[in-house]
Design a protein around this nucleic acid. Structure first.
Lengths: 207, 207
DNA sequence: TAGGTTTCGGACTGTTCAGTAAATAACCGT
DNA sequence: ACGGTTATTTACTGAACAGTCCGAAACCTA
C-alpha cells in the first residue's frame, strides 16, 4: 500500500562502488554518490543510512560476488585443477571482475580489489571495513587452497607442499598485482608475473 | 640576516608521513598535520606550500630513504647474494623501515609502503603521486633484479630464469604482503609467506 | 477515486575544510 | 642597539562537507 522504490538496490550499490574505487572513501562526497547513482540525499539516507552505510553495503555486495565467483572458477574435476589455478591466477592479476551491468573500467587501477583498496585507506580506523576485507581475502584464499589440494591429489603439485602456505602466497601475489600492476606496468608484465608465479609452483619430483 | 627556522625539516616531514599513513591523504586535515608536527598553518604553507606540498616532499623523502636502503641491503659479495635476498625478503614482508628518529609503528598496517598507500588512494587523479610511487617500486625492483643476477653468477639461482621477471614477482609479493599482512594475519604468517616464496626460487638443476 | 503510507528530491544547518593575510616575534649584520 | 628580513602565530574567508527535514509525488488498497 505504499510507494515502491524506484531504483534497483544493486545497481545503486554498483555505481557507488565505482565511485569509491575512483575517488576513495574520503575523496567521495555524498553529492558524488548522489550524482553517480542518481539518487537524492534523502533516498540515500533512507535506504542505506548515509555514506558509511553505502560503503558497507557495497563492500558486502562485493564480498558476495567474490564468494560466488572464486569458488566457482576454481571448482571442477581433479584432472584440470592445475589448469584452473593457472587460469585463475592469470585472470586475477589483471583485476577483479566488476559488476556485469556496468561498463568495465578501462585501466588496471580501477579494477583493483575493492576490499583491499578500502581497507588500506580507512581500515585502520574502521573495524567493519577491516573485517569485510579480511573476509574477502579469506574466501579467495580458501578456494585457492582447496584447488591446490585437488591438484596435489591429481599429482600435479608436490604433495609435500603445504596447500595453505601456497594459497597465502598466491593470494599475496594477486593482491600485490593490484598495487604493482596499477601504476606503470603493462598487462603483458602482469601476465608475465602470473606465469612466473605459476611456473614456480612446486611440481612433484618425478623419480 | 633573517630569522632562522626553528624546526627540523626532515623531522616535520617524518611526522607528516606518519599522519598520512595513519589517516590517508584525504583523511588528514591541515590541522592534523599542524598538530602532528607542531607547526602552525602559516609555517606549513611557507615551507611546504600546503598539504599537497607536504605530501610530495614526504614521499620524496621516503623515496630517498628507500633508494638508499634497498641497494645497500642487497649489495655485497657474490657468495652471499642469495642469503641477502632471503634476508631482504623476510624483512620486507614485515614492513618497510620507518624513519629512525621516530617511534616505530606497532602494527603491520602502519608499516606498509608509504608510496603504495598514497598511490592507491589518490594516484588515479594525482600524476605526481603516481610517478613517485612508480619510482619507489622501480628502485626496489632494480636492486632485487641486480641481486638475482649476482646470485645467478654465483650459481645459486637457475641461470635460465629471467632476473627481471623474478624481480617483478618478488616485488609483487612484497607489495602484496602490505595488503594481506596488514589485515588479519600474524607476523608468523608473513614469515611463512616469505619463506615459501624464497623456497620456490628456481635453483640451478644440479646435473 | 480517495486515503494511507512510503519514497523522492531539494533546501537547509552547523561544522569543518584548505588556503590567505596580517600582525607579531626572532634573528643577524652592522 | 637597531633595522631589515624571515619565521611564526592567529584570526579570517569562502567553499564544501555530512547529515536532517519537509513538502511533494507515487503507489496500493479499498
Amino acid at each position: 500500500m505504499a510507494r515502491p522504490r524506484s531504483f534497483d538496490r544493486d545497481h545503486v550499490l554498483h555505481a557507488a562502488e565505482r565511485q569509491f574505487r575512483a575517488s576513495g572513501y574520503n575523496g567521495t562526497s555524498v553529492d558524488d554518490i548522489s550524482a553517480a547513482t542518481g539518487l537524492g540525499r534523502g533516498s540515500l539516507y533512507g535506504a542505506f543510512d548515509g555514506k558509511h552505510g553505502v560503503l558497507l553495503e557495497a563492500m558486502s555486495g562485493y564480498f558476495a560476488r567474490l564468494g560466488q565467483f572464486a569458488p566457482k572458477a576454481l571448482a571442477g574435476p581433479d584432472e584440470s585443477a592445475l589448469e584452473r589455478l593457472h587460469a585463475y591466477l592469470l585472470r586475477a592479476v589483471h583485476g577483479v571482475p566488476l559488476a556485469p551491468d556496468l561498463p568495465p573500467v578501462p585501466d588496471r587501477a580501477g579494477a583493483a580489489c575493492f576490499a583491499a583498496k578500502m581497507a588500506l585507506e580507512i581500515g585502520a580506523s574502521d573495524p567493519e571495513v577491516k573485517r569485510l576485507a579480511s573476509e574477502c581475502f579469506s574466501v579467495v584464499r580458501v578456494a585457492v587452497a582447496e584447488c591446490v589440494r585437488v591438484a596435489q591429489r591429481n599429482g600435479d603439485i608436490d604433495p609435500d607442499a603445504d596447500p595453505d602456505d601456497l594459497a597465502y602466497l598466491l593470494l599475496t601475489i594477486i593482491r600485490g598485482s593490484d598495487v604493482v600492476g596499477a601504476y606503470g606496468h603493462s598487462p603483458d608484465r602482469l601476465t608475465s608475473i602470473a606465469e612466473s608465479a605459476f611456473a614456480l609452483l612446486p611440481r612433484p619430483r618425478h623419480t
